[in-house]
Amino acid sequence: MLELRLVQGSLLKKVLDAIKELVKDANFDCSTTGFSLQAMDSSHVALVSLLLRAEGFEHYRCDRNLSMGMNLDNMAKMLKCSGNDDIITIKADDGSDSVTFMFESPTQDKISDFEMKLMDIDSEHLGIPEAEYHAIIRMPSAEFAKICRDLASIGDTVVISVSKEGVKFSTRGDIGAANVVLRQNTTVDKPEEATIIEMNEPVSLTFALRYMNSFTKATPLSNIVTISLSSELPVVVEYKIAEMGYIRFYLAPKIEE
């Protein structure tokens, strides 16, 4: 038996909006730790890792580890039927081939339940080793989204270079080229407006902008994004989910051949 009650139900809608462009079908894994998901895009170029910790739910009951295969477009359709202030409860019985989403209005005067069929999904689970990163950039998520959007109108790939000058995002396309340089800036009114660049070693990597732009669908989840770079490793683009966990996107670099 599984019963997860999330008071801030809108969080779940934002999570779905963040990943459904990248991944179509995925297994949600439920354990005593929390509600999690790991999935790759169909080309196996990007990977998303989601964790919503058990402590973040008002009520969390998971009698045994359960993996529930869901079509994310269908799940998003169902969650769209909830009100923005609704409490969402996810329920499933052991061995059941369906999951129920229950929506309660804040004043408890409207209660609905939507039952969704589960599916069998063959998915590979990858081990993600702890790594030392050459550079870690912490910046406003809206700024990162704007840079990715702007550069995608010029080119298909972005070169992210970190040096002691700061972090440079560069692209090149048929109509021209663009460079955006950000310097560390901690003299801001609010901590979430700061740009902090931690560099152990200079690093420069090339990535497909299409994927980066897809990751920025997670922007409504957090004011801050953290980008971790190491040569010879996928970049990690992380959005923290307040008091609950995170969404981490991993993207394999492009390499010269």
Binding site: M40, S43, H44, V45, A46, L47, E124, H125, L126, G127, I128, P129, T157, T206, A208, L233, P234, Y250, L251, A252, P253, K254, I255, E256, E257
Partner: peptide, 14 residues
């Protein structure tokens, strides 16, 4: 020419 690498060439199956 830049070639796109895959995630599976960095992380292995568990």
């Amino acid at each position: 020419v830049n070639a796109q690498r895959q995630i599976t060439s960095f992380f292995s199956k568990t």
